[in-house]
Amino acid sequence: MTGTEPEKTARARLSGLDGLRGIAALFVVLHHCRLFAYPGFPVDNGPPWLSPLLYGHLAVVVFIVLSGFSLAAAPAQRDWRLGRVRTFLRRRAWRILPAYWAALLLSFLVARFLVTETPDVVPTGKSLLVFGFLVQDAVSAPSPNSAFWSIAVEAQLYLVFPLLLVLRRHVGAITLMVCVCTGVILIRLLSGQVPVFASLLHATPEFAVLFTLGAVAAGVLAPGARHRVPWPWLALGGGVGIAGLIAVLGSVRTVSNYFWIDLLAAFPTAALLAGLAQGRPRGLVRLLDTAPLRALGSCSYSLYLVHVPIVAVVSRLLIGPHVPAGLPAFLLTTVIVLPVALVFARGFAAVFELPFQRHRSAAALLAAARASLSQRGSGTGAPPANTLPDAMRTSNSEG
């Protein structure tokens, strides 16, 4: 399907976002390889060159800002109008839940019958219910997969996204950001005096700021948006500042202050996305838009969902009994996990993610399945012509 000229321009501006999403997912995989090889987190007991891998949480910051940006990219070009809220929520559920539920079942089975991620923490039937209904940040249950905590938070942000767009349209970007930031910071400051605020901290309320900032940053795609803002330089300066702050604080104090670090890291992340959306810097856009990184980005959600049980099996069953903790364990774990996780994620995405991304309803998915079976029965190998554009499309859009 070929789009109109404005649609082509919008897609060109969004080049590179898949690559960034893929790199963030790969960073989380390496983060967990390090955690399994070096016990004692958040203490930094490894070589300095591995220290950045302690902060896999910051890759989730990138995911949340990027999610807000991607979801708001199309509404920003339509005067911040979303369309039918019911349709939006249905599409979000259709997009994220099939792969999530499949990964939940996989993680549960691995933890019950092979190896647990955390010794003596075995998921139960309650875990399936709590995590299946995405209430793990509100209801306690043994976790089958430590990466799942952020999925619940993001699902809750989807529920407020339509309201954010209404506020962006009527009160403007600055007022919206001030209101969200003020509310979230008050929750943090008053959490010691107000019990309900203390309980809200488990839901990482700062992610509401990250998500909103990402949505606001998508305003660079709106008609008449300014193109002279030095977004790449703002991103670079902010990123260097965050890196310097983390170096000064050290790993223990950084992890214990993730609330504030997350808020600070959101701004250079949003600036980077704004720059990439406008095609700057060109070299980075071209790099992120290379075929390998686009391919990595197309299965980044699946990679994020399934990598933890793979790391657990490799580290606890294959490496741990034979190699002492430390650098040898990390290197061996990484060498095995990366190819296995990438290949498995590609296959997992092909079954549980990409079909639901390409076909927006159960009827469309069943029709595609029947067409595929019909082709096999007739001996033709090529997909129908009208499915080629969807099959070739990457996961740039969150819609």
Rank of each mutant, 00 (worst) to 15 (best):
D262V: 03
T269E: 08
F259V: 02
A325Y: 00
Q357D: 09
T380R: 15
G347P: 01
Y304E: 00
L288K: 09
L342R: 01
P292V: 13
V306N: 04
S361V: 01
R316C: 02
P321G: 02
R280G: 01
V285I: 01
F348E: 05
Q357V: 14
D289L: 01
P281M: 05
V314A: 06
S302K: 01
C299D: 06
Y301Q: 01
S372K: 07
A295S: 13
S251N: 09
P328V: 04
L354F: 13
A266M: 03
I336L: 15
S374V: 03
S251L: 09
L318P: 01
G381A: 11
L327Q: 06
D289I: 00
L245H: 09
G320H: 08
S256D: 12
R253N: 14
R360S: 05
W260T: 07
L245V: 13
F348T: 13
S256L: 05
L373D: 01
P309V: 14
G377A: 15
A363S: 05
G241I: 13
S251P: 07
R370W: 07
H307E: 00
L338T: 08
L332W: 09
L293F: 07
S302G: 15
A243M: 11
Q375M: 12
A371N: 07
T334C: 13
V252D: 12
S361N: 03
A243H: 09
G297H: 03
I242C: 13
N257L: 07
V335Q: 11
S251I: 11
S251V: 06
T334R: 13
V308M: 14
L342D: 00
F348S: 09
P384M: 10
L296G: 05
A382L: 13
S302P: 07
R346P: 00
G326Q: 03
Y258V: 14
L296W: 07
A350F: 02
A369M: 11
P281G: 08
L296M: 10
D289Y: 05
A271M: 13
T254L: 04
L354N: 10
T380V: 15
I246S: 09
T380A: 12
H322I: 06
V308W: 07
F356H: 04
Q375W: 00
A277W: 02
G381E: 10
D262S: 15
T334Q: 06
P339T: 04
L288W: 03
V308P: 00
R346L: 13
G275M: 05
R316Y: 05
A367E: 11
